[in-house]
Simulated assay, not measured.
Amino acid sequence: MKKIIIPLFFMVSGAMFSQVAVGTSPENNNRWTFGGGIGVGFGSNNYFYLSAAPRVGYRLTDDLEGGVLGSVSWQKSNSYSSTMFGVGPFLNYYIGRTFYIGANYQHYFINYKDKFYNYKMNEEEDALYLGGGYMQRIGNNSFLQLGLMYNVLWKENSSIFSSGLAPNIGFVVGL
């Protein structure tokens, strides 16, 4: 399933970007938005973490935006490794280009391998994040977003995630 969804996601994103990039400018009232975030982490026991979360949106009104969000993350240490891919729709409402409230649904595909116990796991998990945050203008139509989301589907003993809270930092171009 991942072998189909990942290339399809990138082809659709590329097609949308190529349609928007040709012959458009801010004066043409382009309603497409692009953005996302990246993350990297290091720790003890040769721990390494890398993530990327691209997003493509469309401004339905001046203050309401909907679109598709994807995420890919890799974790590796001396004791385990994991890969996680997620994809789903999002909806954001902007308040004066200073604050936002949003919702996004993610369906995750998780591959985990414990090196000491020779244990492998392939799971899928759903998440529905609700929350909001602050926006800081960093250009004409570009913003830095700082927020906090909560996964309302999170259950303590049955989730791959350690908590339902998810802080987020990202960039949006096109608002």
Results as ranks from 00 to 15, higher is better:
127 A>C: 10
130 L>H: 10
124 E>S: 10
84 M>C: 09
132 G>R: 12
117 Y>D: 09
136 Q>S: 12
158 S>P: 11
135 M>D: 03
110 I>N: 00
91 L>A: 15
146 L>Q: 02
67 G>H: 05
166 A>V: 03
154 W>D: 05
136 Q>I: 08
170 G>C: 06
72 V>L: 08
99 F>Q: 11
148 L>M: 15
85 F>R: 11
157 N>L: 07
104 N>H: 11
132 G>F: 10
125 E>R: 06
90 F>R: 01
92 N>I: 08
100 Y>I: 12
155 K>R: 13
124 E>T: 09
120 K>A: 15
104 N>P: 00
150 Y>K: 10
77 S>R: 09
78 N>D: 14
110 I>E: 00
137 R>E: 14
139 G>W: 07
131 G>A: 03
162 S>H: 07
141 N>P: 09
88 G>C: 07
76 K>N: 10
162 S>P: 11
117 Y>M: 06
71 S>H: 02
165 L>G: 13
124 E>N: 13
125 E>Y: 08
100 Y>E: 06
143 F>M: 04
136 Q>H: 08
151 N>Y: 06
82 S>L: 04
117 Y>G: 14
116 F>N: 15
138 I>K: 06
158 S>E: 12
88 G>Q: 03
131 G>L: 00
147 G>R: 01
64 L>A: 09
108 Y>S: 06
166 A>H: 06
91 L>G: 12
159 S>F: 04
92 N>Q: 14
125 E>W: 02
96 G>Y: 07
120 K>I: 14
158 S>I: 13
149 M>Q: 07
132 G>N: 11
143 F>C: 03
170 G>I: 05
78 N>K: 10
119 Y>V: 10
98 T>R: 15
72 V>Q: 01
141 N>S: 13
123 E>L: 13
103 A>W: 10
130 L>N: 09
85 F>Q: 02
71 S>P: 03
80 Y>G: 03
87 V>P: 02
85 F>H: 05
74 W>K: 06
74 W>P: 01
77 S>N: 06
154 W>M: 02
76 K>V: 05
161 F>A: 12
65 E>S: 02
112 Y>F: 14
71 S>K: 09
81 S>F: 10
156 E>Q: 15
161 F>C: 01
78 N>S: 05
